[in-house]
Nucleic acid binder design. Sequence first.
DNA 1: GAGGGTTACGCATCTCGTAAGGATG
DNA 2: CATCCTTACGAGATGCGTAACCCTC
Lengths: 308, 308
Amino acid sequence: MNLQQLHHFVALADTRSFSRASEVVHVTQSALSRSIQMLEQELGMPLVDRIGKSNELTPLGTQVLARARHIVQEAAELRRAATLMAGGAAGTIALGMGSAPGALFAAPLMTHLLRSHPQVQLRLLGGAPELQIAQLRARQADGLVITYRALPPVDDLQFEVLPALRSGFVCRTRHPLAQRPRLRFEDLRAYPLVCTQVSDDAARTLIERYGERAHPQPWIQAASEDVGALLRTVAATDAVFLGVVAAARAQLAEGGLHELMPTPDAKLQAQFAFVTLKGRAESPALQVVRDFCRSLVRDALAGQIPPP
Amino acid sequence: MNLQQLHHFVALADTRSFSRASEVVHVTQSALSRSIQMLEQELGMPLVDRIGKSNELTPLGTQVLARARHIVQEAAELRRAATLMAGGAAGTIALGMGSAPGALFAAPLMTHLLRSHPQVQLRLLGGAPELQIAQLRARQADGLVITYRALPPVDDLQFEVLPALRSGFVCRTRHPLAQRPRLRFEDLRAYPLVCTQVSDDAARTLIERYGERAHPQPWIQAASEDVGALLRTVAATDAVFLGVVAAARAQLAEGGLHELMPTPDAKLQAQFAFVTLKGRAESPALQVVRDFCRSLVRDALAGQIPPP
DNA sequence: GAGGGTTACGCATCTCGTAAGGATG
DNA sequence: CATCCTTACGAGATGCGTAACCCTC
């Protein structure tokens, strides 16, 4: 007994004719006849009474038909679901996301999936990097988008490093410092700072470059994961935003915001990585996510105002 | 995609090992490996991540597993149900039964099925012979057990004539006529008659043999399909039972009842037939029914007191 | 090197399409 | 005689087991 035979039988029952059924399932009438015969032989009883024109199901045939129809239908659904998933058009993916990349990726990613892949369900997981890696190993997460430095050099993970994005300071165009030709760090330090969580690594870089006064801890006036809120705050006050410059791309382009470039250059970089478990097959939907994140970074880089 | 592959995959998912799964489904490990590969190829994605020891399902694999398990299970049920039906151990049969044969067969048949084939559901249909034949043609009945003469000589029906059973008169042992050496019909006629419905044919035979006075119509005191009740009545009164002698076999054997044989012999016969639709496959459960009816008639004949 | 999965090869079986052979109306 | 189903036959596809190979522990 195989799915083919069941499919043939269902067609036969539907058409009540070997020849018409054979057209439906695209085999010769002879092949269909044998297929049914084999099925009958295996089940031990005829399923149809062959009567000239309009064959009739036997009692057994009637019983078998209901089950066969069900099985054939479920097989078709399995095929369909698998094809959808394999094509990345459907599926559920759990994505661990660090707070820094989340600030840049989360909203655009969700928007993109809702628009272009409505069948894909996305669940974003937060938490500390170690926790997220544990979730990845436990397969509670399909992949992570996380700050590259936060990752220990283990070999059961597969890293796909995204291009580094420049971080920097952003203020509103009407900010007192906005028109200043040569900007010193001390000038900047006079204004309150708003940003997402600053990593230890980034804090170290700031201190190395600008001295102890650059330590973000006492400097930060407001911190939030909501980059949009931060930028709106900056647009309305004299606070300065510190973070991935590309996140403010739109406002920078339309002139509402302005990037401050103190001398010397901070040369801050945000480098994100896409992390999966080595040796595991990737959900196609996850590939969609990864591709989108990559293209987002690429676009950010392309539109990024180059350092002086 | 075929049932074999799905079965293999379920085993693989259950054992998390190609080699152990191959033992479960009784193929070599190599064959199972290829089977899974073919399935993965068709679905377009890996279903399991091969990791040294304890393989893991991919996200797609997890989805597919649930559906595959369902399909495999239903296929097994189909096979099981078909085998049961083909073996006659299960199924539902609708059996048209004439009142005369019903009087003899109904109770023993139901008893037999309940005891020996509890999975077989029996539905007995009554009604006029023409109606029953119509039901048979409409496949509302799987078969008929009916008085042979009641049947028109049509060629879309398949008759299986059962051996003729002798009909005759039965009274209680203590009946005034019981010890009478030579019995005339007129003696018999003096006592009330109880019987099941007497067919026109039987009535004609009686009249031909014994004259107009033998017409059953004015003679019958009580008529019922319940042969048991008729016989109990006869055992308690001086009424005489007319019908298939074999129906009273037990009581005749144990001495409670007595067969009356008037001179000349009535030579009444009840001939039943098992009728099915020509060219239609027979429900195996129906064969059980037919076999039982045949054996019942055979036993009745074997135990039948031969005519003098 | 031992265990577990994959690949190569030869063989048996299956299934198909073509074509011829009944049956039925 | 036309339609419909079955049977015969040869070709190609499929699936299997054996055995060799590969990878990881």
